[in-house]
């Protein structure tokens, strides 16, 4: 799965949570808080994105991320590791 596809999943969930946010407003170099989203919105967006991507990263690791780019990176790495792992 490409990095762009992962960004698209996150963007979709951001726009589902907040009707006021348009895709053009989502700047990956900034945080979701900068978009006016609150901490509970962010938990829901990240949880829904992880569920769709079928990966799970501890929230304690995600809490250190500072912007959307970093979130896309960690999800991209985790999805890639899962795709490369032999099927159990």
């Amino acid at each position: 799965m490409t990095r762009e596809a992962i960004q698209a999943v996150i963007n979709k969930h951001i726009m589902e949570i907040s009707e006021e946010i348009q895709e053009a407003q989502i700047d990956p170099s900034r945080s979701m808080k900068d978009l006016g989203l609150n901490s509970l919105d962010i938990v829901e967006i990240v949880s829904c994105s992880m569920r769709e991507l079928k990966v799970k990263i501890p929230r304690s690791e995600l809490s250190k991320l500072t912007n959307l780019d970093a979130l896309v990176d960690i999800l991209h790495q985790t999805v890639a590791q899962k795709e490369q792992a032999p099927a159990s």
């Binding site: 938990v43 829901e44 949880s47 569920r51 501890p58 929230r59 304690s60």
Partner: peptide, 8 residues
């Protein structure tokens, strides 16, 4: 992991 991880 913590309780924050199983909401969904």
């Amino acid at each position: 992991f913590s309780l924050a991880d199983f909401f969904l």
